[in-house]
Design a protein around this nucleic acid. Structure first.
Lengths: 154, 154
DNA sequence: AAAATAATTTAAAACATATTAAACAATGGA
DNA sequence: TCCATTGTTTAATATGTTTTAAATTATTTT
């Protein structure tokens, strides 16, 4: 592979790792993003020096994020992969999904704490109120997410 | 400790772990956040059933994030700790610092790729342009960060 | 100043995650 | 249909992170 491309992939991978993604996922996405043609899992593995099992696992992860997609070429009947080039869209969607999941989890717990008769503790109920306020801000944010997203991505 | 509080700390910790923070950091912050009075490292360790080494390490991490602060009480000459209650502020500051660090790292690499004479590859220079556009969006965002922050936190 | 208590640092252990290698399944071409 | 090739799953290995326990350092009390 070209030296510059290699460096870019390396840089992107470090970046991704910094925000908690695993190495393989970043490498594969960066490779596909920079490639001008779709690649097969085998090619990906060869180029990146990575086992085919690892390629397989992480391609599926990327598909779930809608960060890459399978395409079919006449002649080839096995799938090739391309990157969804809209990085902002991918990131924002992941963000939204993540926040939603966590909200759903925390809300009932806060409700429970609110109902609970530990009214003697003034500080505690004040803190619960603070958290509730924060949660409703986040919910507002989610409610306007599509608007915010289009402001950013367009 | 009170049952409800315990559950809340547990929930907050799971939440934090979900976004890549370590268990101890979350537990300590949640405990201090919900406590109505400052706590010493020893107390924290005892309440959470955690080694003092672990408390020490993770308190320092939290201090670096400005998520907790040392306070002194007359009579006590050793430091006690309280939570910075403004969670939004903490999160946004961490976000900003993180983005800045990563920008500084990726920018020179992009510049290098741009200078590089791989002009034969039309696709490649197009992709570089895409990334540059994205980076300048992020920079714009950072430039207006204080404004955005005050919109959110106030 | 010495003893007691508290906090930090460190090296090792426990734990978690990512990666591989090998077995298995599916597909395409002879 | 059988062989060759590609992709997936899995169990194990390797790697990285968190936590602890113990040693060290700092602080307070007597």
């Amino acid at each position: 592979m070209e030296k510059t491309k290699e460096k870019l992939i390396e840089a992107a991978t470090n970046l991704g790792e910094g925000i908690g993604l695993n190495r393989a996922v970043c490498q594969i996405y960066a490779l596909l993003y920079l490639s001008d043609h779709p690649l097969s899992p085998t090619e990906i593995g060869k180029i990146l020096g990575m086992s085919k099992g690892n390629v397989s696992i992480n391609l599926r992860t990327l598909e779930q994020w809608d960060a890459v997609k399978k395409i079919w070429r006449k002649g080839y009947s096995r799938a090739l992969y391309t990157a969804n080039e809209n990085i902002e869209e991918i990131v924002l969607n992941k963000l939204k999904t993540g926040i939603e999941k966590r909200l759903k989890y925390i809300k009932p717990i806060i409700s429970l704490a609110k109902e609970n008769p530990s009214h003697s503790d003034e500080n505690f109920s004040e803190k619960i109120n603070q958290i509730e306020k924060l949660l409703s801000k986040i919910e507002f944010f989610l409610g306007n997410f599509e608007t915010i997203k289009s402001l950013i991505t367009k």
